[in-house]
Amino acid sequence: MTLEISPGARDALQAWGDHMRALDGAAENTLTAYARDVTAFLAFQAGHRGGPMGLAEIGRLRTADMRAWMADQRLHGTGGRSVARHLSAVKSFARWLSEREGFDPTAILSTRAPKFRKPLPRPLAKDAAKDLIETVGMQHDTPWIAARDVAVVTVLYGCGLRISEGLGLTGGDAPLADVLRIKGKGGKERLVPVLPAARDAVERYIAACPFDLTDDGPLFRGARGGALNGRIVAGVMARARMQLGLPASATPHALRHSFATHLLEAGGDLRSIQELLGHASLSTTQAYTAVDTVHLMETYARAHPHGR
């Protein structure tokens, strides 16, 4: 922790992290990133204002101080998305601290994040998803590894899992039940139905796997028996998409986008898809789906009582 931050501010940072961990269920990676962002912000303000940043100094920050910090971020090449994330952490800390210390956080909270264009999700077409899964199985000469790779991508696509969630499955999860209990971001749990194709792919992998899949050990194993690394899955998909002429956006995460989009295309409602993906906000789910407006309105008209 930098010397430009007073012991009181350091203690406040620690207490804020404990608060988010206990009440908000924030993941450790999120807490670490937030603490790093706020620490860097306070260090900048110490240099900018010419003195250590204690609790009183944080309460006296002005709009000009915030503008100077954001300008410095951009000057050092920090992108708009990253600046927005840093600002979000600073605002969260300031909001919590102001309630505890009784100062007016308006100068901090009223600071606007830079505008940036959110990249549109690029799901695969249904045929492309099917071809990709089949081609993934052709990337390795060792039969059990080929079966493993097919099982992983089939589970990611068929269940809409993040790659960390798919690789987090254990031997105790096999054979896959009709419904999986998945622990996602922030430790939040959700129930995800398992398609027969995903269950069958995992069964073929288990039958071929040369390692003992213990209940508390990883389900998907690397070539030497350890936990499978996500980079291996990404590499296999990269080779498969090159063979099929698919764009670089055809990544493991694109399978999750594809899961959501294809469900919506089939008439699924956004609220149910939100629950399956484990999103806290419906707007996040909407960003995940790339169904054209005409199709979305047709789905809405079929589902809404006044559209019938």
Rank of each mutant, 00 (worst) to 15 (best):
T2C: 05
L3D: 14
A9K: 11
R10G: 03
D11G: 07
A15M: 13
H19V: 05
G25C: 05
A26L: 12
A27T: 00
A27H: 03
T30Y: 02
A33S: 14
R36D: 13
T39L: 07
A43L: 08
F44R: 10
Q45V: 04
T63W: 13
A64M: 07
M66I: 08
M70S: 06
D72A: 14
Q73V: 01
H76D: 04
G80M: 05
V83C: 13
L97G: 07
S98F: 03
I108E: 04
S110R: 15
T111F: 01
L120D: 06
L124Q: 06
T142I: 12
V152D: 04
L161K: 05
R162Q: 05
R162P: 01
E165I: 07
G172M: 07
D178S: 13
I182Q: 06
G187N: 11
L191V: 12
P193R: 15
V194C: 10
P196R: 15
V202C: 01
F211E: 03
F211T: 12
L213R: 14
D216E: 15
R221S: 08
A223E: 11
A227I: 04
I232Y: 07
V236N: 01
V236F: 00
A238F: 00
A238S: 12
R239G: 00
R239H: 03
Q243I: 11
A254L: 06
R256E: 05
T261I: 11
L264W: 08
L264T: 02
L276A: 08
S283D: 09
M297S: 05
T299K: 11
T299P: 01
Y300W: 11
Y300Q: 00
A301T: 07
A301E: 09
H304M: 01
R308C: 09
